[in-house]
Simulated scan of single mutants.
Amino acid sequence: MPVNSPASSRLKLLALFAVFLLPMAVAWGMVEWRWGIPEGRTAHGRLTPDLPPLADWPLSGVAKQGEDDWLLAFDCPAPCGEQADRWWRLHRALGRDAHRVSRLRLGGPGAALPGAATAEWTEEATWRAPGRLWVFDPRGKPVLEYASEVETSLVLEDLERLLKRNPAPPDARLHRE
């Protein structure tokens, strides 16, 4: 077949159409028939859109280190030194993003570990559970909830993903200074 024959030109034109139309057809098939779209979730904790914001929780003495900080709050109804140490180590494992996260111990006797704040329950809440960990966004909305037996590495993975997907505001450094 000669280089400039009508059949060669048609073949080139069909290849050009395929290059542009094939990705569109594949994308339509993915949307319509859910091909290649993961069904599983990416967070290891339980999403908690039904919980009230932190400001509405029956707590006294709630504090964060920074205005734009994410908050790790864990329920500590009895001596919980091991659990407090666990979340302190997780906080340190965040590395350069550790300054974007504050820790809050809810209840429990004794002094808090360095860098953590404490708050006391003023009344019983229906969602309260011993050993539970909640992650709050900078506005105080609960994002994730973890049971007491969750692996620390899974919480770290979720926190790193949250902090990566939600970069610090450009003026956040000015707020700290």
Rank of each mutant, 00 (worst) to 15 (best):
M1E: 02
P2F: 05
V3T: 14
V3A: 15
N4I: 07
P6T: 08
A7P: 02
S8N: 15
S9H: 03
S9K: 09
K12I: 12
K12D: 04
L13N: 13
L14T: 02
F17M: 10
A18I: 08
A18N: 10
A18W: 10
V19T: 15
F20V: 11
L22K: 03
P23T: 09
P23S: 05
M24K: 05
A25Q: 06
A27M: 09
W28D: 00
M30R: 11
V31A: 14
E32S: 09
E32F: 05
W33V: 14
W33C: 05
R34P: 10
R34K: 15
W35R: 00
G36E: 06
P38I: 04
G40K: 07
A43W: 15
A43R: 08
G45R: 01
R46N: 07
P49M: 07
D50H: 14
D50M: 04
D50L: 03
L51V: 06
P52Y: 11
A55H: 08
A55E: 13
D56H: 11
D56C: 04
L59V: 08
S60L: 00
A63N: 13
K64N: 02
K64H: 03
G66R: 05
G66S: 05
G66V: 01
D69I: 01
D69F: 03
D69M: 04
D69V: 02
L71P: 03
L72H: 05
A73H: 02
P77G: 10
P77A: 07
P79W: 06
G81A: 15
G81L: 14
E82A: 12
Q83H: 07
A84V: 04
D85R: 13
W88Y: 14
L90V: 12
H91L: 01
H91V: 00
G95K: 10
G95H: 10
R96A: 05
R96F: 00
R96N: 08
A98N: 07
A98P: 01
A98G: 04
H99Q: 13
R100G: 06
V101L: 02
S102F: 01
R103W: 09
R103K: 13
L104M: 04
L106V: 14
G108V: 01
P109Y: 08
A112S: 15
A112E: 15
A112Y: 09
L113A: 12
G115K: 10
A116K: 06
T118E: 11
A119T: 08
E120C: 04
W121L: 08
T122L: 13
E123C: 03
T126V: 11
T126N: 04
W127K: 00
W127D: 01
R128H: 09
A129Q: 15
A129L: 14
G131H: 04
G131T: 07
L133D: 01
L133W: 01
L133T: 03
D137N: 15
P138H: 11
R139T: 14
K141H: 13
P142N: 06
V143K: 00
E145Y: 01
Y146V: 01
A147T: 12
V150D: 05
V150T: 14
E151L: 13
S153G: 01
L154C: 03
L154K: 13
V155I: 12
V155T: 05
L156G: 03
L156E: 08
R161S: 11
L163M: 06
K164V: 07
N166S: 14
N166I: 11
P167G: 07
A168V: 03
P170H: 03
P170D: 09
D171P: 00
D171L: 09
E177H: 04
E177L: 10
